[in-house]
Design a protein around this nucleic acid. Structure first.
Lengths: 203, 203
DNA sequence: ATCGTAGTTGACCGTACGGTCAAATGCAAG
DNA sequence: CTTGCATTTGACCGTACGGTCAACTACGAT
């Protein structure tokens, strides 16, 4: 089945071409033609693998999510680490990643999930749902970590669900502000304060 | 000079047509033609008042900033209010504003400055600088408020500059997450935790 | 009455957009 | 050797994009 291999290769070349473009520019500003040229693929071939531009960006989101899940996130949420140190690790990872992107690319690109959320979520509920699911998983990681920290007595009891969401919000907000300054050092300076965030239990 | 009046009227009709569109969609997704049709203006007339699309969005940003500065922000940062209550007030204002937008428009549109920042700041340094200036002013408000709270003994001493920036980041992040859920209640739930954020003084 | 100019008109520029299609090609299975 | 399907090709669709332009209008100032 060499045909299959070529096929999947074409598909992944398209995604590989699309990823940095959607990350560094925006959904609307990247055209399918440009992606095809960069991937060395014809437009008809593109539409053989992706019914629409939206389906491409859906695949791109998945690739980014997998990349993170199997990379920094897996490292950060290592059960061997003390719970609260995992959160530090994640913030550090975000910092170093943005910093290295800036070194290579000249600009801070920020979080592709946040970028796409603010751009498209009023216009496309399917994309919004996809991004929401990504955030939801991220929140779960934070929540489990917080609960472990509470159980270990590292931190005082709190509303782990809301605090997890607050921490995720803060991380996205810090990256947003860093992007507005085109300066990853903002993450370095503000990131650690994530651990000061607390939502008390309602009861 | 009735000519001037008509002229400025055309200009502000253009801005008035552009504002809700840029807010509810995105920079790239709103065309000049559509704006002109909605404003009842010809394209040539548009380019008489605005050298480029970028100059229009610059004017739109200014209008939004003024609207906020003279509305909720002025109310929130009322010197008569106890300092930390001003921050609560601002978060509340963001919540009620987004809620009312959703009631009218059916969707949570979020913060136009955050939206534009993530969309265009890698592609247009002039727009980025404009948005950065907006955030910078917002941060100053927070900072002054924090310093007043410290002076009054309401809160323990902290790094007012970094904490102000952290609070602004958090607010933007909360609005981002709320937008991803198309639900302003997220702001209601997470907003108050803004006051738990702290960056300790370096010394 | 005339001049200068701000404002307006509507056609027009080249380019790019997302998406479609019929025809060709490559290749594995029968 | 043929059938059948996945894949690829490249031309093509209509529409919209940001922006330009010469001509025209309206009107205050001299």
């Amino acid at each position: 089945m060499r045909g299959m291999q070529i096929a999947t290769d074409t598909r992944s070349r398209i995604i590989a071409a699309a990823k940095p473009r959607f990350h560094s520019r925006s959904y609307a500003n990247v055209g399918i033609q440009e992606i095809c040229e960069s991937a060395g693929v014809q437009k008809g071939s593109f539409y053989h693998f992706f019914p629409s531009k939206r389906d491409l960006v859906l695949a791109v989101i998945d690739e980014f999510a997998d990349e993170w899940a199997h990379g920094f996130v897996a490292e950060a949420f290592d059960p061997a680490l003390p719970p609260m140190e995992r959160i530090d690790y994640l913030v550090d990872a975000a910092y170093f990643w943005q910093k290295s992107i800036k070194q290579v690319h000249g600009r801070m690109l920020g979080c592709i999930f946040g970028n796409l959320t603010l751009e498209v979520s009023t216009q496309d509920d399917i994309l919004r749902a996809k991004l929401l699911a990504i955030f939801s998983r991220a929140k779960s990681r934070f929540k489990a970590t917080l609960e472990e920290a509470v159980a270990a007595g590292t931190i005082a009891p709190l509303d782990s669900d809301l605090t997890a969401e607050a921490m995720l919000a803060y991380l996205e907000g810090v990256i947003l502000l860093a992007k507005s300054q085109n300066d990853p050092e903002v993450i370095y300076r503000l990131g650690p304060a994530i651990k000061t965030l607390r939502v008390e239990t309602a009861g």
